[in-house]
Simulated scan of single mutants.
Amino acid sequence: MEEYDPDLVPTQEFKILHNLVTDPDASAADAVQQVLDLTTTEILSKNDTPGSNFDSDVAWNICVLIIDIAANTAPTRQTKLLDFVSQIRKVTVADPRTGEKVGCGNFGYLWTDLHSFGMHAADMCNSFIHHHSHTPKDLEKWENSTAFIAQSTAAAAITRNGKPTHRMDFSIYGLYACRDAFEEENQYKSAVRTACLWFIYAAGSMLENCKIGRVYDLHDPPERGFDLDRWHAWKQGLVRTQAGYGDERTQELVRIALERIAQVEAERLN
């Protein structure tokens, strides 16, 4: 368990989520119920009613652990963890004593706003720097995390006006991944592989964002966002990399990414 925060390994939250991804018989629905039971116990343990600024250790731990466990879980085994996130965000938690919704200040309401999940996902995405000397383990954890965030985005709805309406939507990091891979002077293999994972697991969302020209108002004036010219340039960037890397794993990721691009273009570009 050395890959996890030693302070969280002894917690019930860790046992629930780690068991979810390691026990074939564990279900997302059961994990959700166990977390809701922990949440209710925590609420009732407080002397005062939570109000709108309840400081939930359970919610914080769960959101940290979702990201940490995803980083240590292969994409093919992340399905139940994604189901857990999708299911728990549909639950509104009420204080059993008052019937009022439980809020956590800037983190919104339990569990519909997913507490600090988005913040921890953003921290993970922003913490990785592309270079030429990643250890195999660091690269594996980064790619596991990227696959999870991309799959989360694929499970979220993209609105026609391009406004973010879903706490599982991390499309902006797909944009950054493709920018880093195909629009920077120095091209790193890790950046190309990251972009491939976004196309493999969230090509449909990426294309929808390009079709609606989604822009993020993070700067004034806003930086260039998604658009179809970029989509086609990214695709050509992938084609150019096919023969650029000798290792079979990178070539395989590029091949699969191009297959997914062709598939979603056939489905969604008229």
Rank of each mutant, 00 (worst) to 15 (best):
S190C: 13
I88Q: 06
E140S: 10
N72R: 13
T112F: 08
Y176K: 05
N72D: 15
S52K: 06
K101H: 14
F84W: 00
R268Q: 13
Q87E: 11
I43N: 00
R260Y: 04
R193S: 09
C63A: 06
Y245N: 06
S171V: 05
D180M: 09
A233F: 08
W111S: 07
A257N: 07
R224Y: 04
G244F: 08
A191W: 02
I66F: 00
K137Q: 13
D220K: 15
A262S: 15
H219V: 05
I16L: 02
W198D: 00
S86D: 12
Q151T: 07
K211N: 05
D30C: 06
Q187W: 02
D123R: 14
N106D: 14
T11W: 07
M119R: 14
G213V: 03
I16N: 02
H120M: 08
Y188V: 03
S52T: 11
V58W: 06
I43E: 01
M206I: 14
A121V: 13
W231Y: 06
S152H: 00
H132D: 14
K80P: 00
W142Y: 12
N209A: 13
L81N: 08
N161G: 11
K141R: 15
D57T: 15
K90G: 12
T194S: 05
M168I: 01
V93E: 01
V58D: 02
Y188F: 15
E248K: 09
Y109C: 05
N106G: 12
T40R: 05
T41W: 07
V192P: 03
Y216M: 12
H18Q: 13
K101T: 14
Y173M: 06
V58A: 08
R230W: 01
L17P: 02
K163R: 11
F128M: 13
K189F: 09
H219Q: 11
A74N: 09
F84P: 01
I67E: 05
D37N: 13
R97S: 10
D169W: 02
I261V: 15
S27N: 12
E208M: 11
F182Q: 01
F54Q: 00
E223A: 10
S133K: 12
I43Y: 00
V35R: 03
D55H: 13
S116N: 10
V215S: 06
T22N: 12
S27P: 03
W142I: 11
N144Q: 09
A262C: 07
N126W: 09
H134S: 06
M1R: 08
Y201W: 04
Q12I: 02
N19T: 09
R89M: 08
T250F: 11
F226W: 07
G108E: 04
V58Q: 01
N186M: 10
K141T: 07
D55V: 15
K189N: 11
A26Y: 01
V32A: 09
R260E: 12
F199Q: 03
F148P: 02
Q151L: 05
W198S: 04
A74E: 13
L65S: 04
S145N: 00
E183R: 12
R193D: 05
D30F: 03
D95K: 04
T49A: 12
D55A: 10
D138Y: 07
M1H: 10
T135V: 14
T39N: 06
A156M: 09
L139N: 10
Q87D: 08
H166M: 04
N19Q: 08
L269W: 08
D30I: 09
L110M: 15
Y4D: 00
K46R: 15
Y4K: 06
C63G: 03
A74W: 02
Q78V: 11
Y188S: 08
T112L: 13
K80I: 04
S45V: 00
D7T: 07
